[in-house]
Every structure is written in C-alpha cells, then in structure tokens.
Amino acid sequence: MSPRATLLPSLILFFLLSFSIPSPFAADELTVYEVLEEYDSPVGILPKGVVSYELDTSTGKFSVHLNSTCTFTIDSYKLKYKSTITGVITTDKISSLSGIQVRVTRSGDNLEFSVGIASAAFPIDNFYECPQCGCGLDCVNGGQVRKIKMPLVSSI
C-alpha cells in the first residue's frame, strides 16, 4: 500500500475527530447578565427569565427576549417589560430603550426611574440581583422579604 493511500484515511479521521471533540479553549457564549456586567451595568435592570438576546458589538444595538411580558413594582413605580426589549448599550449607559414603560438611566451610583414628570433615583446596589416578574425585588427568599434602599424622589 502506498504512503498516500494510508495518509488520506488518517487525515479524514483527524479532521472528523477535531470537529467532533469540543475544545477546552472554546469560549462559551456569555449570558445577557454577563454582557451587562461587561458594560458596567447592573444585572438587575433586567428581570430573571431572559430566554435569548442578540448584540451587535460594533454598534451596541441589542434585543433581549423574555418568554412573555413581565410586570413588577419597585417602590411605587410599576415596571412593565414587553417580551422584547431593544436599545443600545455602551459602558455605563443604555440608550434608545424600548419595550419597557419606565425610562431607566444611570447617574453615578444611582439608577433613575422616570415616568412622565416624576422620577426617583435608587442606589445602584439595589440592582445587583435580578427582579422577578410579579414580585420584583421584594420577593420572599427563605422567609424574608428583601427591602430596597429608599429612593431620592424628585419631579421635573
């Protein structure tokens, strides 16, 4: 048998094995919550239960998909997320946000929620955990209700 005749099956076997065995160096896709952290935004601006997302890293345009709408209250602000939320993300800033009724902006160590002429700023450390649809950040965990730090309320 010629060297070429034995080399070809060996090369085919090598390529088949290379593509079928996962590489330990292959990067796993980040979750949407990890992407938020990469852009220095708190994960708690999105509720638990995101099913998928798309991000164009060259423009910052994103789409986040929930399996249904999601509503909860933070202090006296009712937040309603549609099943698709879109916007543009850059470090420390999310703009052109749609799919949520309340406007959310970051100002230093606070997140500001605005509805019409009223607004309130909450310390950002309230949003290191993701809210849950229905109960938000005041869900019962282990028999205790988590309380958020009080907002700084203003009107425009």
Rank of each mutant, 00 (worst) to 15 (best):
V51C: 07
K147S: 14
G134D: 03
I124D: 06
V104F: 12
D56T: 07
T69S: 15
S95M: 04
F113V: 07
E29F: 02
F127Y: 09
I89V: 12
C135V: 04
P24C: 00
P22G: 01
A120H: 10
T91Q: 10
I21Y: 02
D75Y: 06
G49P: 04
V145Y: 11
Q144H: 15
R146C: 10
G116P: 02
S83Q: 08
A120P: 06
K149S: 14
T57Y: 14
R106V: 09
I89P: 01
E37A: 15
P131V: 05
D138N: 11
V104S: 12
S58Q: 14
S2A: 06
P42A: 09
T91L: 10
M1Y: 09
L7R: 04
T73G: 05
D92G: 02
V104I: 15
K78G: 04
I117G: 12
G60A: 01
K82G: 02
D40P: 07
D28I: 06
G116V: 05
S83K: 06
G99W: 04
D92Q: 06
G136E: 00
T105H: 11
S114D: 09
L66N: 05
G134N: 03
M1A: 08
P3S: 11
T69R: 14
R4D: 08
N110G: 10
G143Q: 11
Y81S: 00
G49F: 06
G116N: 09
E38K: 15
M150Y: 13
T91G: 10
E29C: 03
L16D: 02
V64T: 04
R4N: 12
G60E: 02
K93W: 00
S96K: 14
F14H: 00
V102H: 10
V51E: 15
V145E: 15
P9N: 02
N110A: 13
